[in-house]
Design a protein around this nucleic acid. Sequence first.
DNA 1: GCGTTCATTGAATCTGTATTCAATATAATT
DNA 2: AATTATATTGAATACAGATTCAATGAACGC
Lengths: 188, 188
Amino acid sequence: MTRKEQKEERRNAILMTALTLFVERGYYDTKIADIAAAVPMSTGLMFHYFASKEELLLELVKMGLQGPGSVGEVPGVAPDVYLTMFLKQIFSFAGEQPWVFNMFVFMGQVRRVGMPEEARRLAQSVDAVTPTVKIIKKGQKEGIFRKGDADTMARCFWASLQGIMEEMSADKNMKAPDPEWLVSMLRA
Amino acid sequence: MTRKEQKEERRNAILMTALTLFVERGYYDTKIADIAAAVPMSTGLMFHYFASKEELLLELVKMGLQGPGSVGEVPGVAPDVYLTMFLKQIFSFAGEQPWVFNMFVFMGQVRRVGMPEEARRLAQSVDAVTPTVKIIKKGQKEGIFRKGDADTMARCFWASLQGIMEEMSADKNMKAPDPEWLVSMLRA
DNA sequence: GCGTTCATTGAATCTGTATTCAATATAATT
DNA sequence: AATTATATTGAATACAGATTCAATGAACGC
């Protein structure tokens, strides 16, 4: 079935192109025609692959939903070590797997205000905060993390990471931070 | 001159309304008609006050340019103390002077990709990083801040703050972080 | 080789919004 | 009060960009 494979590949090319452009210029500033030109293909053809711009966005979000399920505890690994490794992993993607890195940034952007409602809700359905709260509480119990509202701490942790990743997306020359900087926010 | 004053007030009402809506829903998702309805006034009248949606955006950015000139050293105050106070100030605005807080968030948003180019460049002309780099280097010399590329540290500091402020804008119930959390990113 | 189905294109619509405009009300000026 | 200038409105227009469509080309099954 060369035909079907071909189509699948093409579809993927569109998704990847769109992801890059969405992260680079933002959703509204990226026209269907821009994506088509970048793939490249005619504007009209885009609609054989995706019913609408919004569906394209939705598909991308669904794809992001699969990815590395954010954080989850690993028994036997200290909370701070775990988070450090997690961050190191993400920042390494920035250089080695821009696709994955972009997806992270993208998911964070879509959940923000001003994005089409459905995509937004979908993106918000991944809850990175709750598992992080658990990890933080564990760390607090062990005395390695500072006292404080674990929920607010978790949200600040993620918000900071998102801010930093977007800064990195905007300026490819920016160096990734030392993961320890972010973990230090939490340390006692 | 009741007439001129009246106009000035009205103009200001528009700016404030637009600021709120831009931060709450984003620039593209905020229609001129939405701003008009919120002020309230007719859609057409908006154009007696601002030539275009983009000029309205520009005026808002210019207004933001005046505001508290981000950070600057204060002789005799330790770098960590200074930054802590600065953050405390900002977060206090969130509850007491939403206008000022929104302006901070807004300026950060406008400098991002996907915003009209002119407004973006203008917003980027405020350079918070350079003065922060100085403060960080001073702190490093004094041994209270960790070793590391001061430029990257400064940018991460601001990016984190921006991320957190946007999170707070999105969810008014979110508690502000303890300024110390952010300063800890820098501490030795 | 022949018909059928899918891929592809570019031009033609359709739509949502910014923007303009002619008309009316209201305030200032004489 | 009459005249002029400004504020205001709602409807008309302009435009950018998404979406549709009729036509063409290319691969596939028979």
